[in-house]
Nucleic acid binder design. Sequence first.
RNA 1: CGGAGACAGUGGGUGAUCGCCGCUGGGAAUCUCCCAGGGGAGGAAAGUCCGGGCUCCACAGGGCAGGGUGGUCCAUAACGUGGACCGGGGGCGACCCCAGGGAAAGUGCCACAGAAAACAGACCGCCCCUGAAGGGGUAAGGGUGAAAAGGUGAGGUAAGAGCUCACCAGCUGCGGGGGUGACUCCGCAGGCUUGGCAAACCCCACCCGGAGCAAGGCCAAAUAGGGGAACGUUCGAGGGCGGCCCGUCCGAUGUUCCCGGGUAGGCUGCUUGAGGUGGCGGGCAACCGUCAUCCUAGAUGAAUGAUCACCACCUGCAUGACGCAGGGAACAGAACCCGGCUUACGGCUGUCUCCGCCCU
RNA 2: UGGGGUGUCGUCAAGCGGUAAGACACGGGUCUUUGGAACCCGCAUUCGCAGGUUCGAAUCCUGCCACCCCAG
Length: 122
Amino acid sequence: MDGREHDERLPKTLRLAKRREFDRVFKAGRRLKLPGLTIIYASNGKAVSRLGISVSKRRLPKAVQRNRAKRISRELFRRNKALFGEGYDFIFLLGKKFLDHPYTQYCEWIRKALDKRKGWMS
RNA sequence: CGGAGACAGUGGGUGAUCGCCGCUGGGAAUCUCCCAGGGGAGGAAAGUCCGGGCUCCACAGGGCAGGGUGGUCCAUAACGUGGACCGGGGGCGACCCCAGGGAAAGUGCCACAGAAAACAGACCGCCCCUGAAGGGGUAAGGGUGAAAAGGUGAGGUAAGAGCUCACCAGCUGCGGGGGUGACUCCGCAGGCUUGGCAAACCCCACCCGGAGCAAGGCCAAAUAGGGGAACGUUCGAGGGCGGCCCGUCCGAUGUUCCCGGGUAGGCUGCUUGAGGUGGCGGGCAACCGUCAUCCUAGAUGAAUGAUCACCACCUGCAUGACGCAGGGAACAGAACCCGGCUUACGGCUGUCUCCGCCCU
RNA sequence: UGGGGUGUCGUCAAGCGGUAAGACACGGGUCUUUGGAACCCGCAUUCGCAGGUUCGAAUCCUGCCACCCCAG
């Protein structure tokens, strides 16, 4: 894949960082369920789409597991930014089974799921 | 060769592509981007079980309450940690384990069994008196129990008993030798001997103020409210001065400005430290001194990653050799910083020691 | 990050140094044509785990493990 054509960067400005931002998406967002992963999204009125990750200490009790799950989640968003369009905030809500499936499997699932919901873009 | 004991080290590497967070330099340019360089998890970062530094609060000194520690001497900033030694226990041994002060200050507990479980006492028994019932003496033997009031031998006696004696064990006191000390060795005297549990209450000695970096410090929107100044408006409510009007002051209200507290948010604390490495010196050692040298993460909805290839390195098969297949790790992720303890952990390497068997 | 609490049979639980109450459930039996109810009997050798103290530990001490709750 040619990195110059697609912007695969993910600086802090494309991340949700405040409690209010998370609360807004949780309250107003629509949900998309995958095994071990729930994607919540809501439009944000900006020119870019942003990512927030939420993982419960109850579901993944060890810090190593949580860190790894977050990193894989970031890669999923970063390498597939084109799929997520513009002007939306996404929250990846990670579950206990998230680490049971490999990265490539989730790439496939997200691609299919977002294709099916083409309508939400327009 | 096999088994065992005590320790120490290591905790993957190279390359490619796409990313993340600080730092330094430069450029856009205004609080965000771009380029280059360099840095970016651990031996336990963990559990949060102890101890300190640091910060704020409290505080004359001392005591009480509460909590902790518990052989001795060292080490240390300090410790519940470490070292050496003493005492006790386990192992053929290398070696390992021990909260290891006080029970003749006091209180309490010791189930069941047993006569009796702690100022002793007497079931069977033994002995004496006696016609028997019963009375008296005794603690050697039996039996119970986790534990039964020194052990062995001799004398002694109606039968017996430290009742007497010798030796042994233990206790107390004194003297002497060794050791800083815990303690140990030797001698003498005493009374013959006084159970266990203080991780039961307790006594003794020593130690401990409380909270925690979300500590603490600084900057500071919006909104509401507080203080002050200036100007202005009108029904000027109401009130003070005044006999009354006028006037004047306070004042509800409006605009502007200033001040202080302070929320969101931001900055700081924030990484150079009881620091690492090496040499020399002191000490049995823990550790200490000194010289040289090095700078080694600072995130904050929280960076240190993903994908691919190859290789160290393991496992299995095959073994004359080449090789083939699979895996490519385990435990685990910094959150103010150190010293310990404890727990988790795949594989590999090294040093010293003990026991057994065989060969020379 | 800091603080607090609980682990005893399948479930709810008492016991707090001396052979581990009880209830429900479960298994067997009596009764009944059968089922239910009732009655009788049975049911914890690891009291979360590992050491230690004690003659003796679910209970006391130490170290772990798991779960739950609270503050921000």
